[in-house]
């Protein structure tokens, strides 16, 4: 590390922690009991199905672990999780299938 002082680190931690808390608190905290307009409610219903795929897609195609290089086992593991999840509608089963496949493929690669 580029020789960071403990003071710099704690300043970073405090700023990131406070900022993150305010982001999380934002609507929940300041909007309170006021009702949201119907259009906003309709948009918000799609937060999870839009945010999680947007978060995951680049990580699947350009994984951090391979320094951003495309990696077939990780793509296959992601497809496996998606398909098992859509088929059985079971979060843990889908995750277990994907992680299991990735572990096997990683072990095969090591041979």
């Amino acid at each position: 590390m580029a020789e960071l002082s403990s003071g710099t680190l704690w300043f970073t931690i405090a700023a990131l922690g406070l900022g993150t808390y305010l982001i999380r608190f934002s609507f929940l905290g300041f909007l309170g009991g006021r009702t949201l307009p119907p259009l906003a409610l309709r948009l918000l219903r799609y937060v999870p199905v839009a945010v999680f795929p947007a978060l995951v897609a680049p990580q699947v195609l350009w994984p951090a672990a391979t320094g951003g290089e495309f990696d077939a086992p990780r793509l296959l593991a992601a497809l496996c999780t998606l398909l098992v999840g859509l088929w059985r509608r079971n979060v843990l089963l889908a995750l277990g299938a994907g992680l299991g496949l990735l572990l096997v493929l990683e072990l095969l690669r090591g041979l």
Binding site: P48, F52, Q59, T81, V91, L95
Partner: peptide
């Protein structure tokens, strides 16, 4: 990433 996919 796999957790997020599975949860969606």
């Amino acid at each position: 990433p796999l957790t997020f996919l599975a949860m969606v």
